[in-house]
Design a protein around this nucleic acid. Structure first.
Ligand code: FES
Ligand code: FES
Lengths: 146, 146
DNA sequence: GCTATTCACGACCAATCTGGTAGACATTGT
DNA sequence: ACAATGTCTACCAGATTGGTCGTGAATAGC
């Protein structure tokens, strides 16, 4: 598994914040309820996202969390890397050359896959995810109304 | 990390076997030395690969391991799935529908990435990996000989 | 200033996975 | 008989995952 629930939960939370962009702070408990994330665990994830500069928070009554920058400017790649660390499918694609090509020789396959993945993730913004979700909701609603 | 060393080591070992296809059994100790894999760990991997039908083995002096089918007929996808289990980047892409789309909504991004990955891995056979390795060796040799 | 609300942070924890090691045993070529 | 080789099971230490809990800090409203 490339992504743990940490990445999944973290993105869910960010989608929730993006969906309520411009409506003031969203509370942790609300996010946890809507996105089915254990609240005390979400606490950690929001802290991480805040330190990474993706969200900011307001304390006290009426407080909560907000996006630190517009949803259009946050892509899945940076977001997931902040949550999960490197998304490299193999350790050797991660940083420096290991010189393992002589004894291993599969890097070229995975490099291509990794590049494709990063390109795709770069091209998807939080705003695009929200759009998709709204579209999905709309189609479900139509189905029910028929 | 999508792949642990188990997958990497396992493929290394299979490349080694493919490279010596038709030359009789290759011994575990030889593979371990050439591919820098702890021999007692390689033991487990070869057992797994044998149970999965990718290699067969011969006991006794002069024994060792051989590919159970031609290197052209073994693709990275099946091989890695035998070693690592599902390669799905997220749990929810793995099996049944979770109905999480309403609360999560990122599956569509990852489905595309996963599909691309599986296509690529399907298209690469052990024989192709050996070819690449031979090509790499040749270019290194030429560099030294200049 | 008190209180309720909300976030912040660190300690702790159980379960699982990873990457092995070690040893006893089975098979077979000479 | 014996040496070479693969087979199998058990065991292990460390890291990671996916949390929980408790305390404390900021702040809005009264
Ligand atoms: S060491 Fe990089 S793919 Fe094997
Ligand atoms: S539950 Fe499938 S991507 Fe979040």
């Amino acid at each position: 598994m490339l992504l743990s629930t940490k990445g999944d939960y973290g993105v869910r939370a960010m989608i929730d914040l993006a969906k309520h962009e411009g409506e003031g702070p969203v509370q942790r408990a609300e996010i946890a309820r809507r996105r089915q994330i254990p609240e005390s665990y979400l606490d950690h994830l929001l802290a991480q996202l805040r330190r990474a500069g993706f969200v900011r928070s307001v304390r006290g009554p009426g407080g909560g969390h907000l996006l630190a920058k517009p949803a259009e400017d946050i892509c899945l790649l940076h977001l997931l890397e902040a949550l999960e660390g490197s998304l490299a499918p193999l350790q050797c694609l991660d940083g420096a050359e290991t010189g393992a090509e002589a004894i291993c020789g599969q890097e070229w396959v995975w490099q291509e896959i990794y590049d494709n993945m990063r390109n795709k993730l770069s091209s998807v913004s939080l705003a695009a995810l929200v759009d998709h979700e709204r579209e999905h909701e709309r189609s479900v609603t139509i189905n029910y109304s028929i």
